[in-house]
Amino acid sequence: MIEKDIVITNKLGLHARASAKLVQTLHGFQSSAFISCRGKEVNAKSIMGVMMLAAGLGVALKLRTEGPDEAAAMAALVDLFERKFDEGQ
C-alpha cells in the first residue's frame, strides 16, 4: 500500500471533467485506488465518488493505492495532479 498527501492546485478543483481524467488515468491499473479528504474516503475509480468529494482549489487530499502496480498507479495519479489535469490553470 502506498499513501501520499497532495494539495489540489488546478483552479477548478475536482469537477466532472477533471474527475473523468482521474478515473480514466486509473483505468489501466489493476490496483485499487482511494482518495480521502476531510475524513471521507471514496473509490478513485468511481467518477461520482470523486465528484462528491467536493474538493476545490487548495484542498488537501490523501491518495492511497493498493495492488500489484500500486507504485505506477500512484505515479500516474501524482503526475495528473501536478499537470493540473492539463487545464492550463
Partner: peptide
Amino acid sequence: AEFIDAHSLMLADREL
C-alpha cells in the same frame, strides 16, 4: 469531448 467522456463515465458508474 471531455464533457462527453465525463458523462459517459457517470453513466457507467455503479455509484450512480
